[in-house]
Write a protein that binds this DNA or RNA. Sequence first.
RNA 1: AACCCCGUGGUGUAAUGGUAACACAACGGUUUUUGGUAUCGUUAUUCAAGGUUCGAAUCCUUGCGGGGUUGCCA
Length: 562
Amino acid sequence: MSESSNTNQSSDFIREIIREDLETGKHITSVTRFPPEPNGYLHLGHAKSICLNFGIAEENSAKGARCHLRFDDTNPTKEETEYVESIKEDIRWLGFDWGDHLYFASDNFEQLYEWALFLINEGKAYVDDLSADQIRVYRGTLTEPGKDSPFRDRSINESLELFEKMRIGDFKDGEKVLRAKIDMTHPNINLRDPVIYRILHAEHHRTGNDWCVYPSYDFAHGQCDAIEAITHSICTLEFEQHRPLYEWFIDNLPVPHQPRQIEFSKLQPTFTLMSKRRLIQMVEEGHVDGWDDPRMSTLSGMRRRGYPPEALRTFCKMVGVTKFSGITDIAMMEHSIREQLNREALRRMVVLDPIKVTITNWPGNDHQEIMKAVNNPEDDSLGTREIPLSGTVYIERDDFMVDPPKKYYRLSPGSEVRLRYSYCILCDEVIKDSEGSIIELKCTYDPLTLGKNPEGRKVRAAIHWVPFKEAVSAEIRLYERSFTVEEPGAEDDWRTALNPEALTVLENSKLEPHLADASEGTSYQFERKGYFCIDSKNSTQESLIFNRTIALRDSWAKINKK
RNA sequence: AACCCCGUGGUGUAAUGGUAACACAACGGUUUUUGGUAUCGUUAUUCAAGGUUCGAAUCCUUGCGGGGUUGCCA
C-alpha cells in the first residue's frame, strides 16, 4: 500500500505551532489527547478531532509522539460504561490506536481533590453556600459585572472544614459548592469565581460511590492534561474563552507540566445534524432505528452504511484545520467516499427493480452461454468472473421506457441496447398486465455483437442484467441524505427537515449469483447504481439485506430533471 | 448590549511582505460495453475605506459582516 496518504498531510496553524515548539526545543516530542465524554456515541465531528490529535501523533512518531485516549468522566449523572466501549471501537475503526495510553479523568479524582485543598489553603478557593440560582444572579451578565458572594471572604479554615464535610456527604446536592476566587467583575464570565466542585450524590460508572463531590470540567481538564504531560491540548472554539481559566489553574497549582490549549473550529457539514442532543432525539423519538442506523451521522451509523474509514480520514484532511467557523459541503465527503470505493469495490450486477425480458430468438430453452465480466476496471488484479446467460433475464425497470424523451439512450420499443458484457438486444414487444403496468419485454438479440460493436448502427447504452433462473433475491435499502435542507440545525424544528426519502426499502431485487456469498464488511459496486454493503445487523444467509452506501454520480438524472 | 475569535471564488482550504494556488460543487467538451471512472476547459485582483511600503490577501487604523460566551454540562 502506498504511504503517500500519510506523508501528504498538509500543515495547519496547530501543526505549525507544534513544529515550532519541537524546533525550538520547548518540547522534545508532542503529546496530544482525544478527550470524549462517555455520554453518547461518536459522530463525524469527533472524527475530525480524532484525525487531528492521533494524526499529529503519527506524524511525529519518529520523535516519540503519542496521543492519549482520555475519558472525560467528571459528571456521573450522564456517563455510562456502554459508551466507553463504543467510543473505543469507533476510534479503532477509524484506524487509530492509543497503545497503552488509556486514561480516565476519574483516575485523578484524589489528586484533583488535593489540588482543590491547595487552592483553599492559598486563599484562592472558597466554599460558597449560595444556591445555583443565587450564584447566577451574583454572576452578573454579559454587560454588567458580578457581585461578590457573601461567603467569599470566609476563613480558609472554615472553607477547609466545609469542603471536607462536602466530601464525606454531610450536605445534599446543590447545598454548597467550591469556587475559585478570581474576580467577580472580570469581563470574561468564566473568571467570575467559577464553580470547581459540586455535590452530586450519584454513582459513578468507575468510582462507584467513593465520591459525592465531583470536579467541574474546567477544574479537571487542564489538570488531567498536566498529569498526563500533554503538550498541546486541542479543543474546539467554544472553549476559547475558557483558556484564561485553563491557564489560571496551571499557573496557580503545583502541576508537573504546563500544557497549552489550542482551539480550532468544529466540523459543520451541510445536510447533517451534529449536536449530541439532537442525535439523541432522533433515536429516542424513533426517527431512526438506533445509534447505528445508517441515516445517523454517528461513526457507527456510517460504518453500517458502508462508508470506508479511509474516506473519512481523507475528508478530514480535505477540510483542514482553522479557526474559521464555516459550513462544509457534504458533497466533499461524498466525493471522498466514491473515490475510495471506486478504487476498491468489486463490481457486480444487480437489478433493483426488475422487469423480465425474454429473448425470443435465443437458440433454445436449454442453451446457455457464459459471459465474462470484469471485477474492477480500476484494478486488473481483481480478475474476472463468469455469468451465465440463457434466454431470459431481468433488467432494471427504469432502463426501459415506452415513450422515451430525446436523449434517452436505453431500451424502448424498436430500439437497441447492449446487455453489459453480453449481446445487444432489440425490443420488439411490450407485455402489460390488466392494470397497464409492464410485466415483460420480448426482445431479439444479435448474435454478432458479442465483444464487438454492431455494424452499420450505433448502440449507445449498455445496461446491467441478471440471469432469470440463477438470480438471487434480496432486500435492498436505499439511503439518501437524511435532511432536505443545508442546515437542519438552523431550522425552528429540525424534524421538519427530515428527508422522508432518506430510506427506501426494495424487497424484490435480483442479484447476480456471485453475490449469494457476499461477505460482511466488503463493499460492492452494483454497476450503474451505486456502492452497497451487507447490512451488518439484519442481513442473514437466508435473506440477504444490502445497504446502499452511496449512489453513483448520475448525470442522466440531471439531464432528465431539466 | 460587554468580551473573545474569525472574514480569500458558490463551498472548504493554500499562499508565512514578491505572479492569488488546490480540492469540492456547478456548467460545457473529449473518451468510454457502467449516462460510472478518467481527462480538458470556464467561474475571485482576497468584506470596505484609509494608511505603511518599491511592492499588501499578508502589517496598522476605522468601519462592516459572521461565530462564540451569561450550566453546580463538556
